[in-house]
């Protein structure tokens, strides 16, 4: 019979799991419905309202230009988390495609690809993204390009190594023997085998990407004003930290909670897929 402490621990874990999932769904809903749920225009300047504290009209107060902070926070979800999801998706598509093809084809393509990936891997994520963004200049598209350039490599490397293991297995040889064309082998046999690992990596990566974007925006290398973005909002609020700390606290806490949600979801997904892999392998 289980002890009360164990039951309590299990119920606590379940509560965290469902709360995290609920929050993740909430974040996605906010991204989708941003214009509908923003209480006021996120970019509307009312100089007379600058640096107001929380009130019934402005639940989180206003910033140094009199803009409603809650509206900017909601608009920032789409910019920060939405951009992160976009970067994640593009990095996944590039990494998975290149990893699958080079791993399966092998030979010269694979050797060349391995060298390129190794070269990318020697560069630390943050520093490379900052250097690239700095070279390209500030702006949304440049930020997108810089982070994708850093992130696709991890997926390509993971997929390539999985494909190299899988393609030596007998079921691939038997498919070849059965006359299944190479592309269909990749699509039918290899792609489903690599996607479990890719999703886990993606879920764990989401938090890191949010942090990179927020960091680059904080440095002024991300989307430019008046676009609401949590990193740039942190930077804008820095000057007023002593008089209006809510300007830094709101985006700071939002970044922290979102990264936490992404990491917990990633951990859960990894645990779940690991069990399935063990069963299926």
């Amino acid at each position: 019979m289980r002890s009360t402490a164990a039951l309590k621990q299990q119920s606590g874990k379940r509560r965290i799991k469902y709360t995290t999932l609920l929050l993740f769904v909430l974040v996605i809903m906010v991204i989708i419905m941003t214009p509908e749920i923003t209480p006021q225009d996120a970019n509307k300047l009312i100089i007379g309202n600058r640096l107001l504290g929380p009130s019934s009209e402005h639940l989180l107060g206003t910033d140094h230009l009199g803009r409603d902070l809650l509206s900017r926070m909601i608009a920032g979800v789409r910019t920060t988390v939405g951009t992160s999801l976009l970067i994640l998706s593009i990095s996944m598509v590039i990494g998975v495609t290149l990893g699958l093809l080079t791993g399966f084809l092998g030979g010269l393509y694979d050797r060349m690809f391995k060298r390129i990936v190794d070269a990318f891997m020697t560069l630390p994520d943050y520093i490379f993204a900052i250097v690239l963004s700095g070279l390209l200049g500030p702006g949304f598209l440049n930020l997108l390009f810089a982070v994708i350039a850093v992130k696709w490599v991890g997926y390509a490397r993971l997929v390539r190594s999985t494909v190299l293991q899988e393609k030596e297995k007998d079921y691939i040889k038997l498919a070849e023997l059965a006359g299944v064309p190479a592309l269909r082998i990749v699509k039918k046999h290899l792609l489903p085998r690599v996607m479990g690992n890719v999703f886990v990596l993606a879920a764990l990566d989401l938090g890191k990407i949010i942090l990179i974007i927020a960091s680059l925006s904080y440095l002024g290398l991300g989307p430019q004003p008046p676009t609401a973005e949590w990193g740039s909002m942190l930077n804008e609020g820095r000057v007023y930290f002593n008089t209006a700390p809510h300007l830094m606290l709101a985006p700071g806490i939002a970044i922290m909670i979102t990264v936490l949600i992404a990491n917990i979801c990633g951990d859960r997904l990894r645990d779940k897929l690991d069990v399935r892999m063990k069963k299926g392998a």
């Binding site: 297995k169 007998d170 079921y171 039918k188 046999h189 085998r193």
Partner: peptide, 17 residues
């Protein structure tokens, strides 16, 4: 016109199919 049966039946069948 050829067939094959390999040693390890576990790796001869795709586990997710």
């Amino acid at each position: 016109r050829m067939g094959a049966v390999f040693q390890n039946a576990s790796t001869a069948l795709n586990p997710s199919v």
